[in-house]
């Protein structure tokens, strides 16, 4: 086992442990902080895979914006700041079933995918992979259509947010 593999396993263990703590933590605020650690762990995993763009983007988008918005929402809801020992409600068997089913399905799908077991292709030297990513996202033979559909979805979400938040009676 090389040093990099040990580091990768350590990062994976920390990420998984903090992901468990997100749902096991008593206070909502602590859960949000554990979530940040889990997201940073994913970023570190990207970094060990030499996907520096994804690693940095993970921190910028998820830690820098989304996690902070979650904390913001958690801070604004007053009741969740108090210690509340009951973390399960009546519906937990159904939730367990749904989550377990989803996990089993994902594991089944990944076990059938050939890319899962084949060794990764070596990256080209230098900063070429960002340019390749940019081209893949904008070239018609690449992922142009999914990219544009995703941006359309975001525009729809933004218009929806403005509609919900705005005072339209004026």
């Amino acid at each position: 086992m090389t040093g990099l593999q040990v580091v990768f396993l350590l990062i994976g263990a920390v990420t998984l442990a903090s992901a468990v703590m997100v749902v096991a933590a008593k206070r909502v605020m602590h859960a949000a902080l554990w979530l940040i650690l889990a997201l940073v762990g994913v970023a570190a995993a990207y970094a060990t895979l030499e996907a520096s763009f994804f690693a940095v983007m993970q921190v910028a988008v998820y830690v820098g914006a989304i996690a902070i918005l979650i904390i913001f929402a958690a801070m604004l809801t007053r009741r969740s700041m108090e210690d509340d020992p009951a973390r399960l409600n009546k519906g937990w068997p159904a939730a367990l079933l749904a989550a377990g089913g989803l996990l089993a399905g994902l594991v089944y799908l990944f076990s059938r995918w050939t890319g899962f077991s084949s060794p990764a292709r070596a990256l080209p030297e230098g900063g070429e992979n960002i340019a390749a990513l940019g081209l893949a996202l904008t070239a018609p033979e690449g992922f142009l259509v999914p990219f544009e559909v995703a941006s359309l979805l975001l525009v729809a979400a933004m218009i929806g947010a403005i509609y919900v938040a705005g005072d339209l009676r004026k």
Binding site: S52, V56, M57, V59, A60, V63, G64, A65, I130
Partner: peptide, 12 residues
């Protein structure tokens, strides 16, 4: 090679 994005991430 992603220095600028890194700086924005550090700001977070």
């Amino acid at each position: 090679n992603v220095g600028l994005v890194y700086i924005i991430a550090a700001g977070g």
